[in-house]
Nucleic acid binder design. Structure first.
Lengths: 214, 214
DNA sequence: AAATAACATTGATATATGTCAATAATGAGA
DNA sequence: TCTCATTATTGACATATATCAATGTTATTT
């Protein structure tokens, strides 16, 4: 059951007092999702201010060939698509759970009424919005600006978890096919930039990799 | 010379009273730019909260082949890259004037101090941030999700000025070469979706074009 | 109006990456 | 440990779009 204790643990609401937390509780509810379930579809009308409580939510668009283009993965305590809620716009992308999980749904009109004059809350919302801009900028920097090779180089240099990911997930994230990813890793191996030990790659020459995308 | 009258005309500052406008004036200055001049480069440190007063500013990234990838064009009375200023981050892209023009530069720390508690200002800043998210989403929807043909179809359907633009500008905006654009227009002509009269194209069959990107 | 520059079109070719199919490697359940 | 399913690699080929070069068209300057 949703409780004040739960709300208190959410970073964004850290500075709310008991009274405010109660108020927030009264305009919120939780919803649980199984792995793979869709939170919302692109073009749906945004109804609630939504925050991930548990699990991982992927935000994605679908291209005309039915490929999923993943824009971002959200972990707990982040707002999802608050822009659409603020602007009363249809969602610009779809969202689905990659694991079992849950979200907090807040009645936005009431939230606005009660909390928009609170500078600590608005500051948190600012941060959340600027964070979204950074995510989108990253997608563009990665996908629009760089070619596949540079993209792989950048991603494995800047994301420590990249090398332990399954290659087909990594490929999907980088918007390339697993075949292309495999060929790029092979090329990096031949150049001595990475090495394969027992199935996983390790970076040998980070500086050379960085040259590829800078 | 920068005056209260100038500031008053800027939509974002509509609700400020005389005292506040004076305060704003005291922490602001204008800077003039000739066509082609650079306002800032990607990775520069953001110093001032910047707003376009006159002219058109393009925001762009440069890819490894030195192609400019245009993310957006700003017209007067819009904040440029406020996210970088808020977050004290280097600019995520470069900005240059496409026409002669000018900007307002506001001392951000003081602006924050004086105006962040003003709900009308914060609301305007929210709007400005969500607008930026929409622009970036649009770049992704256009460039990452769609192929060249769909991109052209979408752009000429949704931007009335597209057909009167010079084709090499349009091509640059759509991140394709003028040659590819020319071939796509030829294809649309053959299909009877557009027609060429005296040098410029007109849309004959918008519904068919829409099918291409929906 | 002629000359020149800027822009647009067309064809031939190159390139990056995707697609499909076959095979190899790895991991999980019996 | 063996077997089956999943994931990764490889090769052959297809495709979209870029590149380069030639030519045609339009706009601007003198």
């Amino acid at each position: 059951m949703l409780s004040i204790e739960t709300l208190k643990k959410i970073g964004i609401f850290h500075n709310l007092n008991e009274r405010e937390l109660k108020l927030l509780l009264s305009i919120s509810r939780t919803r649980n999702f199984e792995q793979g379930k869709v939170l919302f579809y692109e073009k749906d009308k945004a109804k609630y201010l939504t925050l991930v409580l548990t699990g991982v939510v992927k935000i994605y668009k679908v291209d005309p060939k039915n490929n999923e283009i993943i824009l971002h993965r959200f972990i707990p305590n982040h707002f999802v698509a608050e822009m659409a809620v603020f602007e009363k716009l249809p969602y610009p992308a779809s969202a689905a759970f990659e694991t079992d999980g849950s979200v907090l749904e807040i009645d936005f009109e009431k939230f606005k009424e009660y909390f928009f004059s609170n500078p600590e809350i608005t500051l948190e919302l600012f941060k959340s919005l600027t964070q979204k801009i950074k995510y989108l900028d990253n997608v563009i920097a990665l996908t629009v600006v760089l070619d596949s090779t540079a993209r792989v180089a950048k991603y494995i240099c800047e994301n420590s978890e990249a090398l332990s990911m399954k290659h087909n997930k990594l490929a999907q994230y980088l918007h390339i096919t697993p075949e292309t990813l495999s060929r790029i890793f092979k090329k990096f191996s031949k150049l001595g930039f990475v090495a394969k030990n027992a199935g996983t790659y390790t970076i040998l020459d980070k500086e050379s990799l960085e040259i590829l995308f800078e």
